[in-house]
């Protein structure tokens, strides 16, 4: 078990900057998700941690050891590839004990124990080609775990899995992590995976680390409009407006929609007013008014479109038509550059 420190880690490919200088502490034994849309630099970051790519600048420390000169074979990192990279020309056993055999260690007892732990005992002498995807995932994890790496890196391991099966695999993955108790870095573009499995989430976009925090922190207190919009389905409502100071509080003039209830804190000038669709309540007395334009009923929930605003209600809710008043709960304010106030 080891903590990972990224200090000013940077990666450029020619003129293109894949990763702006990034500082991040990944705690010992923590499950950290690197979350962001494709091209945000999350895979590059992980490849550099694994040693598959060389950083353009900055340092990577495992505990207090600088990894700059350590080749990937000696970093002691377990890596689960997006496609699992199972050695399909070998049996399950040969995959599982590969690292031990290469190190010249007697694989016998450890392989048996690992197979037992992962429920692979009956499959050990089967060819690894043609096994189902959840077995391949277990095998990929077991193959790395048997080397007892201090750090586990997982590169979107669920992206090739059927949607229906992902929930099962998520649960399985999380319970495996609890068993191994290693530091895990999990790259994904799927917020659901990050929210359900991670201890902390690092949200990235365009090569910049946007926010690090527990799932609830990044969900409830997004650091900027990108995080606010990226997390949640649908994402946070963001309305442009003008801050008006009223005493010690602030109200936002949303133009034709109305003037918001007072919020704490000083602010002025153009701002963005944000609130979660789940926090909206209908209230005829509210000063904020919008017409109902569209209602999507999807199973347990229904999503109500109020012009630019989306609101989520339980399935049975009676939705009036025409212009309605609404009250946003737990609102956030962002400044003109998108940062949280």
């Amino acid at each position: 078990m080891t903590a990972i420190h990224l200090q000013g880690l940077t990666k450029r490919f020619g003129p293109f900057t894949a990763l702006q200088p990034m500082d991040l502490e990944i705690r010992d034994g923590e499950f950290l998700a690197l979350l962001g849309p494709s091209g945000c630099g999350k895979s590059t970051t992980m490849n550099m941690i694994a040693g598959m790519e060389k950083p353009t600048g900055g340092r990577i420390l495992f505990g207090d050891r600088d990894m700059g000169a350590v080749p990937m074979a000696r970093r002691g990192v377990g890596f689960v590839f997006q496609n699992y990279a199972i050695f399909t020309h070998m049996t399950v056993r040969q995959n599982l004990d590969y690292g031990l055999r290469m190190a010249g260690v007697d694989p016998g007892p450890r392989t048996a124990a690992m197979a037992e732990l992962l429920g692979l005992t009956d499959l050990l002498d089967r060819p690894s080609q043609g096994l189902s995807v959840n077995i391949l995932q277990r095998l990929a994890i077991g193959r790395s775990a048997i080397m007892e790496p201090a750090i586990f890196l997982l590169d979107e391991p669920l992206s090739n899995v059927d949607a229906a099966f992902r929930a099962v695999m998520r649960t399985e993955l999380k319970s495996l992590q609890r068993q191994f108790r290693q530091t895990m870095v999990y790259v994904t573009h799927d917020q659901l995976e990050a929210m359900t499995m991670a201890d902390r989430i690092a949200v990235m976009d365009h090569g910049v680390l946007q926010q690090v925090g527990t799932p609830l922190q990044v969900y409830n207190r997004p650091a900027n409009t990108f995080v606010a919009r990226f997390l949640g389905a649908p994402g946070m409502n963001l309305l442009p407006g003008h801050a008006v100071q009223s005493g010690s509080a602030v109200q936002v003039d949303l133009g034709p929609i109305g003037l918001t209830p007072p919020l704490p804190g000083p602010a002025s000038g153009p701002v963005t007013y944000g609130f979660r669709p789940e926090e909206v309540t209908l209230d005829p007395a509210s000063p904020l008014k919008l017409p109902v334009t569209h209602v999507e009923r999807i199973g347990a929930r229904c999503i109500v479109h109020l012009g630019p605003v989306k609101a989520v209600f339980p399935a049975g809710t009676e939705i009036p038509s025409g212009v309605v008043g609404f009250t946003p709960g737990k609102p956030c304010l962002f400044d003109a550059k998108g940062g949280r106030i």
Partner: peptide, 20 residues
């Protein structure tokens, strides 16, 4: 990916060549 996986599992270049 298989070559990289082998590397990360500690295989030397010769071992990678022979086994993968």
């Amino acid at each position: 990916d298989q070559l990289r996986a082998a590397t990360l599992l500690g295989a030397s270049p010769w071992q990678r060549f022979r086994t993968i």
